[in-house]
């Protein structure tokens, strides 16, 4: 016959005290949410990168700016970030041209302001939910630790009622409590990794957008000259 010491995962969770169970439930929810944001941001950023690359290619392939603008504004609901920036800048440029006044500095600064506004809006959308990942990464270990401390307190309080203290009295309680820390870490580690990764990805996208904005305003500036050229 074999002697078995049986600590299963299920009993560890079900035997824990109510507060520890609440902490575990909270951590599970937070972990689920953070993972869903991780996947959502992963797919979003991948799509954004693909759209940016695609637009850059079609922009630098020498297409006429007017046709590009019309094509972009036709399906503006599906447009990528860079297309929106282009659209905002070119629209501002067209308005100036329609108004007749083609002062170079005025037009360029107007176009740049319009593109900057759209750029900021797009960046805000790309960065959405990243703060949640950062919060989870920094806070959930503490939440788990709180559950653990509470569980260990309970384990030791139970020990006070027993005349003869052995390790067997405390060990299950501590094991239960430590599950909370494990869950906190399980939620935190991927969140931190994903946050760092995505922040880096978004920075790279931002650099691409900014360089495009500079180059595009140069192109527009060159277009003003021949129009003004007397």
């Amino acid at each position: 016959m074999n002697v078995t010491t049986d600590i299963s995962l299920v009993t560890l969770v079900t035997n824990a005290s109510v507060l520890v169970q609440i902490v575990m439930g909270l951590l599970l929810l937070v972990s689920l949410m953070s993972w869903s944001y991780i996947f959502m941001k992963m797919l979003t950023l991948r799509r954004a990168r693909a759209q940016t690359t695609q637009f850059e290619e079609s922009f630098w392939s020498g297409t006429d700016l007017n046709t590009l603008y019309q094509r972009t504004s036709a399906n503006s609901t599906d447009a990528g970030s860079l297309e929106r920036i282009f659209e905002a800048g070119f629209r501002e440029f067209l308005r100036h041209r329609k108004g007749g006044a083609m002062e170079v500095t005025v037009v360029t600064s107007g176009v740049q302001r319009a593109m900057k506004a759209t750029y900021q809006r797009e960046m805000d959308r790309l960065e959405a939910h990243l703060d949640f990942l950062a919060t989870v990464g920094s806070v959930s270990p503490y939440v788990g630790l709180f559950g653990t401390v509470w569980g260990i307190m309970n384990a030791f309080r139970g020990l006070a009622n027993v005349g003869q203290a052995t390790l067997a009295h405390v060990a299950p309680g501590i094991a239960e409590a430590l599950v909370a820390t494990a869950m906190g870490l399980f939620a935190a580690i991927p969140a931190v990794v994903a946050y760092n990764r995505y922040a880096h990805d978004i920075d790279r996208l931002a650099i691409r957008f900014e360089s495009f904005m500079e180059e595009f305003s140069n192109i527009l500036q060159r277009q003003i000259r021949p129009a003004n050229g007397r």
């Binding site: 689920l32 949410m33 996947f39 959308r125």
Partner: peptide
């Protein structure tokens, strides 16, 4: 870029 991704993200999570 984010449209239609939420259900997928939850399923993957």
């Amino acid at each position: 870029a984010e449209r239609g991704l939420r259900p997928w993200a939850w399923m993957l999570a």
